[in-house]
Design a protein around this nucleic acid. Sequence first.
DNA 1: TCTGGGGTCCTTTTCCTT
DNA 2: TCTGAAGGAAAAGGACCC
Length: 454
Amino acid sequence: MSSSTPEPDSFEAVFGLPLKSAITQTGVGAPMPTKGPMRRIAHLDMDAFYASVELLRYPQLKGLPVVIGGGKKSLAKQLNGVDPKDWDAQTPLDQFPQLKDYAGRGVITTATYAARHFGVGSAMGLMKAAQLCPQAYLLPVDFDQYRHYSKRFKDIILEICPVMQNIGVDEVYLDFTHVPGGQRENGLSMAKLIQRSIFQDTGLTCSIGVAPNKLLAKMASEFNKPNGISILLESDLESRIWPLPCKKVNGIGPKADSKLKSLGIETIGDLAQRSLDELMGHFGQKYGAWLYAVSKGQDDRPLETQSDPVSISRETTFERNLLAAKDRSELGEIFTRLCTQLSLDLQKKQLMGKTIGVKIKFDNFKVVTRDQTLDMALDQAVDIRHAASQCLKRIDLSRRFRLLGVRVSSLVPKGQVSTPQAQSSHGDDVSSEDPKRVLTQREIQPSLLDDAEN
DNA sequence: TCTGGGGTCCTTTTCCTT
DNA sequence: TCTGAAGGAAAAGGACCC
């Protein structure tokens, strides 16, 4: 490739040396800025990621309103008897279920731009979405597929810019500062190259913001969606950031925003007019000081290129609200399934955890959690279930609830911990058995809700 | 809007120990 | 044995994000 004339927009054509050399010989022969390196942080956000991945598979849905979600795996199957696994690019449109055929619980995970025109959006109940856009096609969520494309676009980025922080499946921060060519046109060249490389390989588009820090880069990536690039300099703060509403800041959610509004603070510019003391008085030392810094565009957080998980959990919302006293066996099965899934998740990641907790969401949406830290880390379903049911005993389950969750935290890498097998807390020597082993009725029956009621 | 599932981080409360 | 202060760890709740 590099022996012939490079393609017009290739790394070599833009930066004057082959990509591989640029990476391995950082700074050697690479175009470097004439002044000292300015911090150039990029935030890259894939455009409507899940929906775009689905459209790659089902091009016949392009341009049509499509919503993704519904929660239940068997969703599409229930709707018209066709397993989504059997769908492909040849599947005729009338095989795809539509929202008008749907009745039940669940929310939308995401929607195509065509569906968003009808006012349908993320986190909206499916029934509400069906009112707004009954003709929208409904697809189940396929995380394996999204993870596959996630890895693909991140691998492409890493070849060009090795300093990357993962933010979920469809978002990353990048540090261009010391990457050869990263300073060119204040980061525009690098952003263009990355955007183009991802599109060529995957057919997916993304939006990129480049700025002096993560805070501003994140906001900048939204300026020009979809498939846009925005370059933000420190001097742009007043003209481009201050006019924005406060809730555009990553970290200012609905609660903080409404409190800010009650103080007459609508925009980031308004925020910048307030003193540090005033903000700390209203929002506390830490958050107040953070708000103050945010309004000035200040953020010196480094990129975190590695991170270990803090907790792992599984939770599920029931088809209908359940009552511990009445729905014992159903709840017992759900509880066992959650613990089993959690155990497999832990084992897949080679982790064990010392703190086990449960979460209940009552029919009035009030959430209650209980957890317990044990002497030893564990990862087996039966052990998790036993510890979690101890936690459940401490919750008053006399009213109906809609969600049950199980969580493991205080995680440690497996192999670095002594296992609880030698002294299994419940006496049954089951911990050392096959993790995929199905729990026996005897283990399930003396179940959560028996225990929990007394 | 009528509210999923998987996380992180922060603050406050509670409990234990000295 | 009681009381109170102080500090730390664990537990609980909540805001926020994707």
